[in-house]
């Protein structure tokens, strides 16, 4: 395998879309799980454990382990392995929940 993490495919590729991870601009395929788009961009660490600070990424890939959760378009705790990527999707590692903020 050379270059990126995305395999060549004989199927027609989905449309490319732009999205952000921690405000960094990335490109993925429309409709693929966010976790796949992140992996294809070489992003392994999706968040840090809130008590130990250790990095965490995809583990089970089927929504069971919740390790790949992130904030997606302002909603916390979204499992990126189950959530399709769209044009402009904003993904962030840090839970920015603030009760006082409107």
């Amino acid at each position: 395998m050379s270059g990126g993490y995305r395999f060549p495919s004989d199927e027609p590729l989905a449309r490319q879309v732009r999205f952000t991870f921690n405000e960094r601009e990335l490109v993925g395929l429309e409709g693929e799980p966010i976790a796949a788009a992140l992996l294809a961009n070489g992003v392994r660490t999706i968040r840090h454990d809130d008590s130990t600070g250790e990095p965490r990424g995809v583990y089970c890939g089927i929504g069971h382990c919740f390790e790949c959760r992130a904030q997606v378009d302002g909603v916390n705790g979204v499992r990126t392995c189950l959530t399709p990527l769209r044009e402009g999707t904003r993904v962030a590692s840090v839970a920015q929940w603030d009760v006082a903020k409107k």
Partner: peptide
Amino acid sequence: TKPGVVCVGAAQTFTNVHHVAI
């Protein structure tokens, strides 16, 4: 728990469905 350790099922899905290398 380090990013990069995955279950075999996840490896299978990422490889065969999403065409992304783990």
